[in-house]
Amino acid sequence: MEKNKIALVTYSLSSGGLERVVANSTFMFKEMGYDVHLYVLESKVNYPFTGKLHQFNIDQLGFLSKVKAYLSIKKSIKKNKINLILDHRYRLNWITEIMWQKLIYRKQNVFNHIHSSLIYSYLFNFDLLNRFLFKKRLFICDSLGIERKVNREFPFLKTQTIYNFTDFKAIEQSGLNLGNYILAIARMDHENVKQIDVLLECYAKSSLPEKKIRLIILGDGVRLEEMKSFAKELKISELVDFKGFIPNPENYLENALFTVLTSKYEGFGMVLIESLIMQTPVISFDCETGPNEIIINRFNGLLIENQNKDKMIKGMNELVFNEELYNFLKQNSLTSVDKFRMDSIKEKWEKVISDTP
């Protein structure tokens, strides 16, 4: 098998942060000299990527057809002589996972990713099963917080934190003129992970509406209409713009006063880094993992006590009315995220891969 071939496996490349990370990383691995293969299991591909796409649309298949698709994946990996696999999937059930780890990945080196502080989405609550499936696998964690949590719960697993890289290429001035606004980027899913309802409530109770500072929300999802209705209920709908999914949000980040994150939990929080690259300060709940590895409180943004809405409102007001603090945060934003540049992340990947037998 050829060492310079790499496969990235994911469910979709649609509208989420994880999917964007996977798509972006195809460019990084190509730059590192790999022949990149991208295995997308479902039917949605929205983000730009590079490499050869292998798409299986299992979300549209019945049981027997899914089994055939999985066997096709195994044959494709063997045919393309792929030795290294980066698996970004969450775990559906133990039966399916036995097939993946013991049949499809039988002869490959596999790095399993963990993208969320909800580690039981990626591991099972049964030590013997995890030992059977994963004892020889390396788990790549998006943040140190995730790695520490995995180490506490499953000390027998091999782990390594590698941050998601961010492209620092200069963005041309867009001329985008939307007036004064703050920004949130979020998929509004069933689980309500990003808690746009909390953001709307905090915004409505802050002084920003009085100052005619708008709230722009990029993203879609099953709760989108519910969130629009909630904005009407709060009597702020005229000041809130739901723009839908925007694959390249840099221009919105560049022109915002600041970016807000009100998540229940995170794996990392890529939008915070992307905002800081555009020299736009950030404010976020200090949820279990992620934001506190990016935000240096009162240096490049505000880190708010987790789920404390009153303090979030106070922080949003401070970023508007405390001009000295705001300018200080803005001044520090870009240099504060140097460690997330592609070159730094490439070095970590090169070391991990070179250490793999």
Results as ranks from 00 to 15, higher is better:
Met1Gly: 14
Lys3Gln: 12
Lys5Gly: 02
Thr26Asn: 07
Met32Lys: 00
Val36Cys: 05
Val36Phe: 00
Leu41Asp: 12
Lys44Asp: 15
Asn46Trp: 05
Ile58Gln: 01
Ser72Trp: 03
Ser72Tyr: 11
Ile73Thr: 07
Ile73Glu: 12
Lys79Leu: 13
Leu92Ser: 13
Met99Ala: 06
Trp100Phe: 13
Arg106His: 09
His115Gln: 14
Tyr122Ile: 06
Leu129Asn: 02
Asp142Glu: 15
Gly145Ser: 03
Glu147Met: 05
Arg148Pro: 01
Lys149Gln: 09
Val150Pro: 02
Leu157Met: 05
Leu157Tyr: 00
Ile162Ala: 09
Tyr163Ile: 07
Asn180Cys: 08
Met188Lys: 10
Val193Gln: 15
Val193Asn: 14
Ile196Val: 15
Val198Ile: 14
Leu199Lys: 07
Leu200Tyr: 00
Cys202Glu: 05
Pro209Cys: 09
Pro209Tyr: 00
Lys212Ser: 15
Arg214Asp: 14
Leu215Asn: 12
Val222Trp: 10
Leu224Glu: 13
Ala231Ile: 01
Ala231Leu: 06
Lys232Ala: 14
Val240Asn: 13
Phe245Gln: 04
Phe245Trp: 03
Asn251Glu: 13
Lys264Asp: 09
Ile273Glu: 02
Glu274Ile: 00
Ser275Arg: 01
Ser284Pro: 10
Asn292Phe: 01
Glu293Ala: 04
Ile295Gln: 08
Ile296Tyr: 10
Asn300Arg: 00
Ile304Trp: 01
Lys309Asn: 13
Lys311Phe: 06
Met316Gln: 01
Leu319Ala: 04
Lys330Cys: 04
Lys330Asp: 03
Gln331Leu: 14
Thr335Tyr: 05
Arg341Asp: 09
Asp343Leu: 08
Thr356His: 06
